[in-house]
Amino acid sequence: MAKSNKPIVWSLFAGGGMLSAFVTPVLIFITGLAVPLGLMSLDSLSYDRMLVLAQNPIAKIVLFAVIFLPLWHAAHRLLTTLHDLGLPKGRIAMTLCYGAAALGSIAAAVVLLRI
């Protein structure tokens, strides 16, 4: 049997799964619920504060990791889930899922570098 290259995507899946298990709930809570509902001050996400954060080189790397890894985690899991739901395994589904993750990662990198 052919040697598998699955370890590339699987390691991204596992790394992204681990990272998002730890940080995604609290991030969703802050940005999507606590601040918009006024449980936390709007200053937390203010323009000046976020700009300083996004211009810091170390924060750029952290932000990129927090976007990139969960994105690949999600893409890989979506691919297997589509198969679970009855879609045949094939190049089309694979290209769409991994392609979307690649595009998202590039967009994240470009945006972060330009801030």
């Binding site: 049997m1 052919a2 040697k3 598998s4 699955k6 699987w10 297997t80 679970d84």
Partner: peptide
């Protein structure tokens, strides 16, 4: 590993 690490091996497991 020829079998276990192939696509039809552990990688088909979700």
């Amino acid at each position: 590993q020829e079998i276990a690490a192939s696509n039809e091996g552990v990688w088909d497991c979700t």
